[in-house]
């Protein structure tokens, strides 16, 4: 496959004797918004963490522009700086202000000047509507605001792909909207995104590709309309039926 940003090939991951992921295979092309859905414990988050090398895959390959990042001789830090990640629990640096959260990576990792990094950070903080809060510490802002800052922090590194690990699961329903609208905005601007989510409306309306996982394997994947409205697998149908019944 030429032109793909990320290719996951036969990826497996075990914790001890417990196999969490089995033979995962999919491809992300530039501009794709891929939603990964499935029940809790199906390995969605582990998959995302493997892609960012926060977990080391047991076997299989992760190709970034065709190069296997799980192999030896690959600097995981340099790779991670090109693949942004947004966490369920935000993980903003508690010892820094909102602005410094978005500046520190650019200065320390990308070696930009402070002034340049600040200007860049402000651009993304504006985009997520958090520019007025640059002097606040993470503990002083709400969950939805924290997540928007976390998105700005990831964007400020100007990554080629952005991974979202259940970005709205820790938020109350009112704040889910503000984060989702930022994510929609990003998708509209052509950002390549890989989103683990329970927001079916988001998966259906925003993503270009949906992956349904169950018990550590990809059960079904494809066009969102097709997977979400005309699923072929019984597992997918069950999951969606239960989801819609809620």
């Amino acid at each position: 496959m030429s032109g793909a940003i990320l290719e996951v090939r036969h990826l497996s991951k075990s914790f001890g004797g417990h196999e969490v992921l089995r033979d995962i295979d999919f491809t992300v092309s530039p501009g794709d918004v891929t939603s990964i859905i499935g029940t809790s414990g199906s390995g969605k988050s582990t998959l995302l963490r493997c892609i960012n090398l926060l977990e080391i895959p047991t076997s299989g390959q992760i190709l970034f522009h065709g190069q296997d990042v799980t192999g030896k001789g690959v600097n995981p830090s340099r790779y991670r700086s090109k693949v942004g990640m947004v966490f369920q629990s935000f993980n903003l640096f508690n010892n820094m202000t909102v602005l410094d959260n978005c500046v520190v990576g650019q200065v320390k990792v990308l070696k930009k000047s402070r002034a340049e990094a600040r200007e860049n950070a402000m651009k993304y903080l504006h985009q997520v509507g958090m520019a007025p809060y640059i002097n606040a510490k993470p503990r002083q802002i709400s969950g939805g605001q924290k997540q928007r800052v976390a998105i700005a922090r990831a964007l400020a590194m100007e990554p080629e792909v952005l991974l979202f690990d259940e970005p709205t699961s820790a938020l109350d329903p009112e704040m889910v909207g503000e984060v989702l609208s930022v994510m929609r905005d990003l998708a509209n601007h052509g950002m390549t995104m890989l989103v683990v989510t329970h927001e079916m409306a988001f998966a259906r309306d925003v993503s270009s590709h949906v992956v349904f996982m169950a018990d550590g394997v990809i059960c079904e994947q494809g066009d969102p309309q097709q997977v979400l409205t005309h699923p072929t697998q019984p597992r997918t149908r069950d999951f969606l039926a239960r989801f819609m019944a809620q």
Partner: peptide
Amino acid sequence: IDPGQTEGAKAIGMTHVQAMTNVILPQAFR
């Protein structure tokens, strides 16, 4: 210190040393 802080630092490409000096130690010191 919450492991999430280290993960957040690693996710933006910091090395262990950078994560320690910029994120973990300032909080641990406090």
